[in-house]
Computed example of a mutant assay.
Amino acid sequence: MAALVVESLVKSFGGVRAVKGTSFTVDRGELLALIGPNGAGKTTTFNMVGGQLHPDSGSVKLEGRELVGLTPRAIWRMGVGRTFQITATYPSMTVAENVQMVLLSHHKRLLGWWTPAARQFRAEALELLARVGMAVQADRPSSVLAYGDLKRLELAMALANEPRLLLMDEPTAGMAPRERVELMALTADLVRERGIAVLFTEHDMDVVFAHAHRIVVMNRGEIIADGTPDAVRNDPHVQEVYLGSGAMFHGEPQGKAVVS
């Protein structure tokens, strides 16, 4: 069953029509990659799903409930988690406190003056940190973490909201190759365990083709392909429009498979 249903999204900026009637779905337990060259409209589409941009027309539904017109915070309250290309954590807090802050908000306990914030939901925070391999660093300031560990922390923070849909904007940006593989493998495990629907944008084609269950390719504001990694890899239109020769789709030596 589809957790996310996007129908006929349209968005223009002045005289430029950035997105032209985009439609797709994301099922529970599915990792869907939304990719395309610069100017394809994928970031605009992604931000309309998350509420950072309002579409000119169209619909975004989470398990049948309309998201268009809601604020990002209201969308978060409905069960949509998000990670960012540039990590969004609180550097003055410890790793555990970062997760506890999200748990406090999720459980609507921010005004609970009778119990110090640092003592609330610590056990739950430690459980989430253990799941992403960060429990041993729970009491370290997040300001001293390596970038790959910050990405893991941000994932734990996103999971603290018990999301039904997780939006991941360039989840492996700035990470070393090994860290990229580990983070996406962890995400795939969590998707299977919790039945979360994941929509992610990514420039690293190795990451996309290794971990996405399905790929939606955009170009000039329109979807030009929607299918399994194998189907997209062999799509002549995708090869021509998105990757030129398309050689990297066929395992030929190309160095880093990254498209900007």
Rank of each mutant, 00 (worst) to 15 (best):
E193R: 12
A188R: 15
E124K: 02
M168W: 08
M218G: 05
N161T: 12
G174F: 09
Y147R: 05
V181Y: 13
D204N: 15
P141S: 14
D189K: 14
V191T: 00
R220S: 06
D206W: 09
D169F: 12
V208F: 08
G174S: 12
V208L: 08
G174A: 14
Q137I: 01
R152N: 03
E127N: 06
E222C: 10
L183D: 12
M205P: 04
G195M: 10
Q137M: 14
L190I: 15
A138N: 10
A188W: 00
M134Y: 01
M175K: 10
I224L: 07
L145P: 03
L126W: 05
A138Y: 10
L153C: 02
G148E: 11
V132H: 01
V132K: 05
R180N: 11
D206A: 15
K151W: 08
D226A: 07
G227L: 05
L150M: 15
L183Y: 10
L166W: 10
P163V: 01
R178L: 14
L167G: 08
A210C: 02
V132Y: 02
A130L: 01
A212G: 05
N219T: 03
E182R: 06
G148P: 02
V207M: 03
G227N: 08
A135Y: 00
F200M: 14
E179F: 04
R131H: 00
L186T: 14
D139Q: 01
G148L: 12
G133F: 04
L165Y: 02
T228A: 12
H203P: 09
L126S: 00
D230S: 14
A185M: 12
D226C: 05
M175E: 08
I224W: 10
D204Y: 09
A135D: 08
V217H: 12
R178G: 04
L129F: 09
H213Q: 14
G133L: 07
R140D: 11
V191A: 00
I223Y: 11
S143E: 11
V216Y: 01
G195N: 08
Y147D: 08
L159P: 04
L186S: 02
Y147L: 13
D206P: 06
V136S: 05
M157I: 00
L190P: 04
T228N: 10
A188K: 15
